[in-house]
Every structure is written in C-alpha cells, then in structure tokens.
C-alpha cells in the first residue's frame, strides 16, 4: 500500500496540560452512544458509536446449524463472526477475513458463552455477526459490548450483560479506554470483559509490560469504568421498551 499521507505516531501521548491527545483525563472514557433494534431483518441487533468506532451487531437464532456436523445433541452452539469493513482502517484491509478477525471472533464467542443458557437449545445455533464500519482502537471490546446488547435485544435468556473495555499504559501512565493512536504507540494494552452475574473476567488479553501493582490498579480502574458503560447498556435497553410502551399508549389514545 502506498499512501501519500503516512501513518505516523506522535512522540508524546500527553499534552502539556496533562490531558491525553484527544483532551481526555486518564480515567475518562470516550463518548459512547448505543442503539438497539437497528436492523429489521435480524432477530436482535445493536449499534454502537464509541469514540470514532462505529459497529453493528446482528443476532440470528436459535436456528438450524450450517454445516450440520457442528451441531451438538446436548446444547446449542454460539458462533461469532467479527468482520471489519475494508475502509474502516488507515490502510485498506483486504476484503477476505484474515487471521486477526478469526481470532477475535473466537475470543468474543468464548467471552459471551458463559452468560447464555445454551443447554436449553440442543441442536441449534446462535449466530452473531459483527461489522466494524469505522475503527479507532478497542474494536474487540466495543464489539463484545454491542454483541451482548444485541443478544439481549433478541430476547435470548441471559444471566447478565457483558461489558468490555481496554485499559493500558501510555507514556508510563495508566489509562482507561485506549484510542487507536494510544493503542499503537503506548506501552501496554489490556482488553478485558466483565460478566456481571458473577462479577468475573470473561475476556482478557494483555500485550506490553507492567509490574504487579500496576496490573492490580489498572484492573480496578477497568471495573469502575466498565460500570459506567454497563449503565449505558441497561438504559439503551430500557429506552427501547419505554418507547414501545409510549407507542402503544399513543395508538390507544388515537382510538378513543
């Protein structure tokens, strides 16, 4: 790929006033907006804008398993397909799914499975399709968050929602919610997902260097920040039902 404008990283990831390059404090999240029931053809769907990330998730199922040999007689299976649009990144991505996309798909499936009651759906499949339209760091976490919302929108029984975010270290400081530049130019990146029914960690990856006390602090920060995201998830779901209720009342009002 030859591009006229090169993808270069700044030397410093903090401004003079101690704020991060995008003006955030160390423990501040990027703006997050979520929506459910955005795709009419899916059984459940959700959309998230997290900073510059824009991601759609659609859930289909329980439905027949293709290919058939993957089906399990004693429980349903969960399949996740995380895909990035060719134009969602700085260098155009090749259209066919690559190794990274396949790995992330598996990680997200493993992360979400603990909250589902798959044993209630033997011989069937739940399929989650995640399409990243615009990417700017932390897409696997945003995808996990939006996928769990789409599952809830589909009305599939769940033990709880799942919330994910990335924490890490940039220029020697611990921060939450790494942006694209911070992820590439920083020292450590730690994506983490929390299943709220048992308050445990269901997705964890780590690349970089940290000592034990830093790791301890950053995990605590992650949980605190995740709680804020969880609130947005819950409110998004609630708002859907409130608007359905309002519509019904409006229709009733019209009849009188």
């Amino acid at each position: 790929m030859v591009l006229l404008i090169k993808d270069e990283y700044p030397e410093k990831l903090f401004q003079e006033n101690g704020k991060r390059l995008d003006g955030r404090d160390k423990k501040e999240l990027r703006p997050i907006k979520m929506e459910v029931d955005v795709l009419k053809n899916a059984d459940g769907s959700a959309y998230i804008e997290w900073g510059n990330n824009k991601i759609f998730a659609a859930v289909f199922g329980p439905r027949e398993v293709h290919p058939h040999h993957l089906s399990k007689p004693d429980k349903g299976i969960l399949r996740v397909f995380y895909r990035m649009a060719t134009y969602s990144v700085f260098d155009r991505k090749r259209p066919a799914p690559g190794r990274r996309e396949k790995e992330i798909s598996m990680i997200i499936a493993d992360c979400l499975e603990p909250v589902l009651f798959l044993e209630l759906y033997p011989g069937t499949a739940f399929e989650i399709f995640i399409q990243v339209i615009d990417a700017d760091g932390g897409t696997r976490c945003a995808s996990t968050t939006v996928a769990s919302l789409a599952l809830a929108d589909a009305g599939i029984p769940m033990k709880s929602l799942v919330t994910a975010l990335a924490v890490g270290k940039i220029d020697g400081e611990l921060v939450v919610d790494l942006s694209g530049i911070e992820d590439k130019a920083g020292e450590a990146d730690l994506p983490i997902a929390i299943t709220w029914f048992n308050d445990e960690i269901s997705l964890l990856q780590f690349d970089g260097e940290m000592d034990l006390s830093e790791l301890d602090t950053v995990l605590k920060d992650a949980k605190e920040a995740a709680k804020k995201i969880y609130e947005i998830q819950v409110n998004t779901l609630k708002n859907k039902y409130i608007s359905i209720q309002n519509n019904i009342e409006k229709e009733k009002g019209g009849e009188d």
Partner: peptide, 11 residues
C-alpha cells in the same frame, strides 16, 4: 467497485 452482502443484512 466492490460489494459485500454480509449475513448481518438478511437471513
């Protein structure tokens, strides 16, 4: 020009 009909859009 390329087009992708992704399974997210329709069963």
């Amino acid at each position: 020009i390329m087009a992708e009909l992704i399974p997210l859009a329709s069963p």
